[in-house]
Amino acid sequence: MAADAPREATEVPGIGYEDFTRFREFYYRKTGNWFEENKRYYVDKRLLARMRATGCGTFREYFVRLRFETDGAELQELVNSMTVNETYFFREEYQFQCLVRSMLPRVVKRKKPGETVRIWSLPCSTGEEVYSLALYLLEYWDDVDDYNVELIGSDIDTRALEKANQGIYEGRALHALPGPLLKRYFRRLPDGSHQILKSIRDSIRISRVNLQDPLETRPYRGFDVVFCRNLLIYFDDAARRRAAETLYDALNPGGYICLGHSEFMSRISSLFKPARFPEAIVYQRPEEDQT
């Protein structure tokens, strides 16, 4: 098996190149996620697994089911299997770099002295992202002492939020965090795990919110930056449109939104305009808009 792996590595039997092309156009249109050619093996493997799970003998049979099934349940299953749903400290660090080097300098230009910079992490899950933001600002934002920053992490999953409030992490969650930061901002617990300092935990607000509920989300407004990574892909078209609208209203004019690294707003909503920075492409609520 291992001996002939090199040749097999790019082609999974049963799914040809035209099938892959057909699938990725469809998937991109539905989810806003684009698979480069080098992801083909990964994509084919997951397609094959879903074909087995649904009892489809051929790619074409499976694709018809995926494409025409009225309730979209199989598409949802497939999205779940295609998505690496892991969160860890400093994941996709280039976006945090973009925050401190490019976005915040522009944001604070619009601020009056004493005004607060507000950042929303959604979904914050077990807290890695929102705490990463806190650490990143404290460590790498030159102007951090000149402005007050309000950080809010929200999620729909209350069990995840409990963990976020506790702020206890181990192993995998911490692997990308520079050693000195682990020492500076965490307390080692007897079982070997690490808890983020109480002073950090106390300075961040964790809240439960359902992005799809207009009444629940109404109070969330006045943000300068929203991190909303790898969430919109889980929604259907209507829910994705609604989420985009909610995020639009949550942002100040000129505010920025960061999506996951393979998510593109161009398949989701025309409300935002792309903003190109040296570190990343993010999206911006147009400045001239009235509220």
Partner: peptide, 18 residues
């Protein structure tokens, strides 16, 4: 401490509803 927390910043939905 530059990080600040305002728990009163977001009123509960019920308050707005009125």
């Amino acid at each position: 401490m530059p990080l600040i927390r305002r728990d009163d910043a977001a009123p509960a939905p019920g308050q707005e509803r009125r």
